[in-house]
Write a protein that binds this DNA or RNA. Structure first.
Length: 776
DNA sequence: AGCCTCGACGCATTG
DNA sequence: CGTCGAGGCT
């Protein structure tokens, strides 16, 4: 340990060895925060604390995993594994499962993701016959989420005059009723959403002092990473756990607080020293990551904010290059500029993996992607649809969820007719109605259709019975089988495999691959658990983890040599030699949502600070003078944040419009092309000529796909007498009248004919359906 | 029952 | 310009 301590600088070491009382570690960007946390934990272990008595809360699974790995190298794997280290959500869901009986939930409760809860809200609003244009699901969802993060239960909501009044004013007076029903239905289904995990933990601790006391004495030291990003619910959990022993250490950087939209409250960190009188404050101010110019530029930016803990981040690395600003005429040119710059810099001994392109919104990735592809630059995009959100994956997971908790309403609705088994909307409607009426789950109704007086014919009853049998059979076998055996039984016996494998289209193949990937993932999970000494790895074990995973947690080709593209939010905690921050324009960065709210602008500024401080050697900021938004190009002006940076750390080869609006400088951004007449929109022309080859390629590909689908699909439809159909034949259609066949593709059930109708133009018709008669 | 087209709406950011 | 949901068509 003495050896380890030597590897720390003075302030780091002080933060590590102080363990007597509460402490706050203000960790500037790149100041070795993770190092302090890991060494501190190692130090605590060495002082004799058993690993399971240390609670270390992080913000992402990834952070937890990396820290565990580092601690494992400092101590040993066994020890590292026994630490209570993970995200708030994953650790407290574990505790909630243990203590579920106290709060009226089953210990095998399902965790609804955002999609599940939105879908539940939709059905509730439908039942209440509310207009989803007035009651927008997303808006309702965020209202409920905010309430929960502030620990306002539905009962408290109902009684809160302010909230109710606010809903009246916004013309959505029934939010409280929706909230109530939503919570009721979740309980009915044995489900918690993400916010519940924190809310219910608080309820548990509030109402069961004995339980709280148990965990208080169990966790003898509590550490929290990224404390600036905690919301009220998280803050209170931590406070409850530490109130008596006050052995707590929180680490964070107020300058990097960027999650207020999900309830994070920067005051938690700003007020920490008042919450815990006598608390020691350690400041880590030496930045080991970036060159002086980058650090200084970032400092000059963040000093424009009013609310912050005073600190002076400095770098003792070389001065380095100045932060450069690049202006482009359009968003698409911006992409090209970035791609070009990457290629240039690659000549100077950089790998692709040394670059990151950071943007404010995911929507910006597309155009950049196109530019990189055109230049043959390999890239990897983080974010977007996560693996577990894909339909084919979620369908399988829904089966698994149903096996663990058959009352899970959202899972039930997803799979009752997948693969298609003739249980349609009408039947589901009857089930739901009965369930709502008797205040029971869909599964309960399904188990006693007669008792609940379901008005269905015998055919439907049989189908429902078969489905029930299947699920019940799975449930029965689940005791004996492992997660992977169960999963493979499910995909086979439910008919998912046979359904999916009939589809030979490109999309179909990719779905099959995803399914294989999922099964492989489950097998790996079992494998790891067994290596850790588990005898039986159950489906429940797997599910309780998977719902809290995100796509960031399974990056496969991490070591592949590719440019990284992600949002600034996603980049927090990472570092790259060279960083491009793109789209530095008003209404984009800072976002248009924040412009009227000074607090929000400050948060955007912190976000920009995070972006800049990801860079080790070179940081390049770009903006475009026009950008496609909502389908049309709009002019934009450079971000105010560019002016916040002290110009002595900036390099502006373009003598940019950010500071100079003279005609001479403006001219430079004007397109110098032959098209550029003041009367036309040069960009549009350019766009068209440029985009079309790509568009053509895409079209070509999708055409191919379609043909392939048609040709390769096995046919089950009986061959009709349309076998006599030929190109050039004259045909008649009930609705479109007469026409001439110009093409036929595919055969059997998927055969398609293109017919040029005399009055209706060209149509593609699926022969299976279109009742064509040959005229001659 | 499933596919496709049309129209509305929105651009945050995440566990 | 996307995507996503609703509704229409076969």
């Amino acid at each position: 340990m003495e050896e380890y301590l030597k590897q720390l600088n003075e302030s780091q070491r002080e933060a590590v060895v102080y363990t007597e009382g509460p402490s706050l570690v203000i960790a500037g960007a790149g100041s070795g925060k993770t190092r302090v946390l890991t060494y501190k934990i190692a130090y605590l272990l060495q002082q004799g604390l058993p690993p399971w008595s240390i609670l270390a809360l992080t913000f992402t699974n990834k952070a937890a995993r990396e820290m565990k790995e580092r601690i494992a190298t400092l101590t040993d794997e066994q020890t590292a594994r026994r630490l209570w280290m993970g995200t708030f959500h994953s650790l407290f869901s574990r505790i909630l499962r243990n203590e579920a009986e106290h709060i009226g939930y089953p210990s095998n409760f399902t965790i609804y993701d955002a999609t599940d809860s939105k879908s539940l809200l939709r059905s509730i609003m439908k039942e209440m016959q509310l207009d989803d244009k007035v009651y927008r699901p997303g808006m309702i969802q965020s209202r409920i989420s905010n309430a929960k993060n502030a620990l306002v239960t539905w009962k408290a909501y109902e009684q809160n005059k302010e909230l109710v009044q606010h809903d009246m004013d916004s013309k959505v007076p029934l939010v409280r009723e929706i909230y109530k029903r939503y919570q009721n239905r979740c309980l009915q289904a044995g489900a918690m959403d993400f916010d519940d995990l924190l809310l219910q933990t608080n309820i548990l601790f509030r109402d069961h002092p004995d339980v709280l006391e148990k965990y208080r004495s169990f966790f003898r030291f509590v550490l929290v990473d990224e404390y600036q990003d905690t919301n009220f619910a998280q803050h209170l959990i931590v406070q409850r756990l530490c109130e008596t022993h006050r052995r707590i250490c929180v680490v964070g950087d107020d300058a990097q607080s960027i999650y207020s939209f999900r309830g994070a409250n920067i005051d938690n960190i700003l007020q920490f020293k008042n919450q815990y009188p006598g608390c020691r404050i350690f400041k880590l101010e030496r930045n080991y990551r970036s060159t002086q110019n980058i650090v200084n530029a970032a400092n000059s930016l963040i000093h424009k904010n009013t609310k912050q803990i005073q600190k002076t981040v400095y770098s003792e690395k070389e001065e380095g290059n100045k932060v450069s600003v690049l202006a482009s005429y359009s968003d698409y040119e911006e992409g090209y500029a970035v791609a070009g710059k990457i290629n240039d810099m690659r000549m100077r001994n950089y790998d692709y993996a040394d670059f990151a392109i950071l943007y404010r919104t995911n929507a910006q990735s597309r155009i950049l992607e196109e530019a990189l592809r055109k230049r043959g630059i390999p890239y990897k995009i983080y974010g977007g649809l996560s693996f577990y959100q894909r339909k084919e994956v979620k369908d399988v997971i829904s089966y698994l969820r149903l096996i663990i908790n058959p009352h899970d309403e959202e899972a039930f609705k997803r799979v009752i007719n997948y693969p298609a088994r003739g249980i349609g909307e009408t039947t589901l409607g009857k089930l739901t109605a009965a369930a709502t009426e008797h205040n029971v789950s869909l599964w309960t109704v399904l188990n006693d259709p007669i008792g609940y007086a379901l008005q269905i014919n015998s055919g439907t009853a049989k189908k429902l019975g078969d489905f029930r049998e299947m699920i019940a059979g799975f449930i029965e076998r689940n005791d004996k089988l492992s997660a992977e055996e169960m999963a493979s039984a499910v995909v086979k016996e439910s008919g998912i495999v046979s359904t999916l494998f009939q589809d030979r289209s490109v999309e179909g193949i990719s779905k099959q691959e995803n399914l294989q990937e999922l099964l492989k993932g489950i097998a790996e999970f079992c494998e790891i658990r067994r290596e850790e000494g588990a005898e039986h790895v159950s489906l429940a074990d797997f599910l309780s983890e998977v719902s809290l995973l995100t796509d960031q947690d399974n990056d496969k080709d991490e070591q592949a040599n590719k440019v990284t593209m992600m949002t600034v939010h996603a980049a927090k905690g990472l570092e790259f030699k060279n960083v491009f921050v793109v789209g530095l324009e008003e209404d984009l960065f800072p976002s248009s949502m924040s412009k009227d709210n000074p607090r929000a602008v400050e948060e955007e500024r912190r976000l920009f600070y995070v972006a800049i401080t990801r860079a080790e050697e070179n940081c390049m900021l770009t903006y475009a003078k026009s950008r496609y938004r909502n389908g049309q190009s709009a002019m934009c002006s450079p971000s105010r944040f560019l002016r916040d940076i002290d110009t002595k750390y900036l390099h502006m080869p373009e003598n940019t419009a950010a500071t100079d609006s003279s005609a001479a400088s403006r001219e430079r951004f004007e397109r110098p092309s032959a098209f550029a007449s003041p009367f036309q929109q040069p960009k549009a022309v350019e766009r068209e000529t440029y985009v079309s080859p790509v568009a053509q390629a895409v079209q070509r590909q999708s055409r191919l796909t379609k043909v392939e689908t048609a040709a390769a699909s096995p046919s089950s439809a009986p061959a009709s007498d349309l076998s006599g159909l030929y190109v050039g034949a004259k045909v008649r259609h009930d609705r479109f009248g007469e026409g001439e066949v110009t093409a036929i593709e595919g055969d059997g059930g998927n055969a398609k004919a293109t017919v040029a109708f005399t009055h209706f133009g060209q149509k593609q018709l699926l022969l299976k359906f279109a009742r064509l008669t040959i005229v001659e």
